[in-house]
């Protein structure tokens, strides 16, 4: 009986998740463009990715910077806001709701709205800068600023959701513990690091993993806002893979090699998290 119940789900996962993973690694050893025949070329794709061409390394660096920034700021802000908005009041609830709204909206829509605000000539942000007598910025057109614009949009979009999760976990801390600490007159910072943080660490750990994974697969915002530019200043792994797989004469083998590397990175990161951060997580 249980097998009948899990069979459909497992079939779907095997066919659409695990088989593609294996096939991805397999394809990465071939020269293949979907139309031609597969030609086995060993590690040539990997060699080109890592040592010959420079664009992959650039995409990798961009993705790493982006992910680190998004993970760091999202978690930090989510905790700070959660502590700040913890008290149950009308305005807090309204603010939570407002902050959560962008999370439900498509990243494409969000990206269009922000592109419009980042617009160099008639965008709102440059108008605001002009209003306070600052010189305008080139935002998405500026190779060092563009990636940060994308970071801002990502944090803006998902902060509300992660805030809710942190809030919920704050509320699940037994009130006796907090009260006990308050009776002891424990200083605020110490209370936070000794009591609150450990108590919510499982959720934070979960956030760490989900946000990392979702950052490494960033695509929609980049494609809409910069399409990887200027140059390849905002090229990330998935835009890279997509470009080689579906543009550029469909070099599926090469793109698969890039995909396999992305998979490898995600696996290493996950293992790393579980090994090093996971140990410190306090489970109730």
């Amino acid at each position: 009986m249980p097998y009948v119940m899990v069979a459909p789900a497992m079939t779907f996962l095997l066919v659409f998740t695990f088989y593609p993973l294996a096939n991805l690694v397999y394809l990465s050893f071939f020269r293949y463009n979907l139309i031609s025949d597969k030609v086995f070329i060993g590690l040539t794709n990997y060699r080109n990715l890592l040592f010959v061409k420079k664009d992959f390394i650039q995409a990798l660096k961009n993705t790493a910077l982006y992910s680190f920034a998004v993970v760091f700021f999202t978690i930090l802000l989510a905790i700070l806001f959660a502590l700040w908005l913890e008290k149950d009041s009308k305005i807090n609830r309204f603010l939570q709701k407002s902050m959560f709204t962008p999370y439900l909206i498509a990243m494409v829509s969000t990206a269009y709205i922000w592109s419009w605000m980042f617009d160099v000539d008639s965008g709102l942000l440059n108008a605001a800068l002009a209003f306070v007598k600052l010189s305008p910025l080139r935002w998405l057109n500026d190779s060092s600023l563009a990636i940060w614009c994308i970071v801002i949009v990502s944090v803006w979009k998902s902060l509300g959701y992660y805030l809710l999760i942190v809030l919920a976990s704050l509320k699940s801390i037994p009130s006796e513990i907090i009260e006990a600490a308050e009776l002891d007159n424990t200083p605020w910072l110490r209370k936070f690091f000794r009591i609150i943080l450990p108590m919510i660490s499982p959720q934070i750990f979960f956030l760490l993993i989900t946000i990392t994974i979702s950052s490494f697969k960033v695509f929609d915002s980049v494609r809409v806002m910069t399409n990887g530019g200027p140059g390849n200043a905002t090229d990330v792994l998935v835009t890279y893979i997509h470009r080689y797989a579906f543009q550029m004469n469909m070099r599926v083998g090469y793109a698969s090699a890039a995909g396999s590397l992305l998979l490898g990175i995600l696996m290493i990161l996950t293992v790393f998290y579980f090994r090093f951060a996971g140990r410190r997580v306090h489970y109730q």
Partner: peptide, 26 residues
């Protein structure tokens, strides 16, 4: 993409662009 990096990105020199292109050409 190389031209975009130079003209729009502006964080690279023309010499570097040409050098990168030589690698890509290879």
């Amino acid at each position: 993409s190389a031209m975009s990096q130079l003209i729009q990105g502006r964080n690279i020199t023309p010499e570097e662009v040409v050098q990168n292109l030589k690698d890509e050409a290879a």
